[in-house]
Design a protein around this nucleic acid. Structure first.
Lengths: 367, 367
DNA sequence: AGACTGATGGAGAACGTTCTACACCCTCCG
DNA sequence: CGGAGGGTGTAGAACGTTCTCCATCAGTCT
């Protein structure tokens, strides 16, 4: 096995060049609603009405104001709007910019809102609960019209408090609530699909690697917990309860690598491993390579989320598709319904997952 | 070669469950500065001063106001602040959520701003120039204190106009300006490093795959252009001008795949390929696999950015490290200097890249 | 003709901050 | 003892919107 070699450089040289010209001329007054009103010869109230296409505006007025806006290149000042009405902005909480599954969700949200007047702004928090809570607060303080929280690590009570003030959709956690909407994937079903597939191939020693459910947040059914549940039930269904084992790992390459080494270097190594995220599966892939084990020859490996990396040439990872794009789009649609008060009951949407078989799974013991 | 198989499922079933309870109670008044002032028995002006730790506040006043804020759990309303002063928010324009290099930059920005009072909000645009321009406008309208634009596709004139109004740092483009700051990587040097490395291994037919420079935006030196420049100069230096060839491709798995097929299926296929992004390199990897070529046996392959995927087990891609984290941190630092008016001259920071050799490059003709 | 409608436009008060003046008090100096 | 001057606090006008009334006006109905 070749040595891994130097992988990351740390310090780079900086060359700073000071430019010549002074540019403190930050003047350039904005065009305001008052300017538009004056230019069109009407009141600001009228302009406001036209913008929000409110009731009580004649076509002639419409026309006049719209051309005035166009002529002056007017753009409403979102912060000012936020003081009274809407800001036409939707905030998304994202804990992990690196998980490509979240990129799928994001694309779904974006596509859904593309042609609306709403803008999406992303608050990228770290993994820490406090970090995330701070980001959520930041979004609320910036007067977002609605919030989409992707598998928040923020304690549930705080999310409920936020949701009481701002329309909120939670993606991932299975805990239903009458105060926020939810979009979830039936992770338990997904785990079942995988176990069924592996058992059909002849596997019996199937291990699960998933993130540790954060009980701290008081969420009863995080995606991880649902996944583990489904896994255990499926194993039981096949009479394999005794052989079930769950190992916790962070959903990152490193996390998977560590878990993989632990699982695969023992005497009774499993013949198949199911993971809660594709990235973690890749870490296990690396661990297997380190130990001289081949995939799927020695071990079958299954990811989750069916992200783009799963289908990459050298990888070809069997995975569970969650249709992140659809989840994102659905969440956005539900959120806007709430923001515009077209619905006042909380709602939950569940997506059914689907197994995508590639080359990382095979019958056990076949070299 | 096994068939690629079904890779992506499209439609998922939706199960919608309407919840029982009505939750239209979106009341819950915010705590405002007035509340704090009343509770502390002082004027709102005093509270405002304390918050901004402005001049002319006695320690006693400090104390009183701070406890009042704490007792009421006061959080300033960012939208309202935006009307007069700052919003304490930095906006980041990101065209491609999927490129992990940008995640590195983002982390750098976040870490730099972690302990400050500033919050980072990300505007995720698509690749289209109009799409991006719209996102930038959205950020400006939301009264961001400063903007970080990561390799914007927005036309240069528009960026300059924006920068005249809001402090701006451009990452990537080499075009200097006296109105915005810049953080760039010496991409030409990076390309040179790669060519030197490959030539030292014995390669002579070295091709470059990079994104098409978008002349439309009126940027003279995009990263791609600088890269191609460095490549051509290095080839020339080694007397290989005649053998140089550049092929354009989108920086995505698919883009790389297409370019790879085109380059590698011809008669005079290169013995080494240099790409402008790791993702594209992976696409070429896939193309090589499709054609039954091995890497680095038949073709050496080099990526760019040294993202996490480059070091993944099955990949082990030689790449050029750009220290995205440092770039992000530097950009954030420079931006805040500008926002707080501690500097009024435009500035450019250049980072020097570094080659990270892994297993995807070897001497040519060695199987 | 007078009263009642419905449709349309405008006045002006919010909204929660910041920030410029200015008022007040104390101390110090002539 | 009067005034200058520095240090602290406050009043109140912005900031750019939204939105609730209210006024106006042209029809329509008795």
């Amino acid at each position: 096995m070749p040595a891994p070699g130097v992988e990351r450089c740390t310090v780079n040289e900086e060359i700073r060049v000071l430019m010549a010209t002074d540019s403190s001329a930050r003047n350039a007054k904005r065009v305001t609603i008052t300017d538009v009103a004056r230019h069109a010869g009407v009141s600001t109230a009228a302009v406001s009405k036209v913008m929000r296409n409110a009731y009580g505006v004649s076509p002639a007025m419409q026309e006049r104001v719209r051309t005035a806006m166009a002529e002056l290149g007017y753009r409403p000042h979102a912060a000012a709007r936020g003081m009274r009405g809407r800001t036409y902005t939707v905030g998304v909480l994202l804990d992990n910019v690196r998980n490509p599954f979240f990129a799928d969700i994001l694309d779904g949200i974006r596509d859904q809102l593309e042609d609306s007047e709403y803008t999406v702004l992303i608050g990228a928090a770290g993994f820490g609960a406090e970090d995330q809570a701070r980001t959520v607060r930041a979004l609320v303080d910036r007067q977002m019209d609605g919030l989409i929280l992707i598998a928040p690590g923020t304690p549930r009570p705080e999310v409920l408090a936020t949701a009481a003030v701002t329309p909120t959709v939670v993606i991932g956690h299975h805990d239903a609530s009458d105060v926020h909407d939810s979009v979830v994937d039936a992770d338990d079903v997904g785990a079942g699909l995988v176990v069924d597939h592996l058992v059909a191939l002849g596997h019996r020693d199937i291990a699960l690697v998933s993130a540790a459910g954060n009980k701290a947040g008081r969420w009863q059914r995080t995606p991880e917990i649902a996944l583990a549940d489904g896994y255990l039930r499926a194993m039981d269904r096949h009479g394999l309860s005794g052989r079930a084992r769950v190992r916790h790992a962070a959903y990152s390459d490193d996390g998977g690598h560590t878990a993989g080494l632990a699982l695969l270097s023992g005497d009774d190594r499993p013949t198949a491993i199911l993971t809660g995220a594709d990235v973690a599966a890749l870490g296990i892939y690396r661990a297997a390579a380190d130990l001289g084990l081949s995939i799927p020859g020695d071990v079958s490996l299954v990811g989750y989320n069916n992200t783009a990396i799963a289908s990459l040439a050298p990888v070809q990872l069997t995975s569970v598709d969650q249709a992140g794009h659809t989840m994102g789009a659905t969440a956005a649609r539900m959120l806007i319904e709430r923001v515009e008060r077209r619905r006042d009951r909380a709602m939950q949407t569940t997506m059914t997952p689907r197994l995508v078989v590639r080359r990382s799974t095979a019958a056990p013991g076949v070299r």
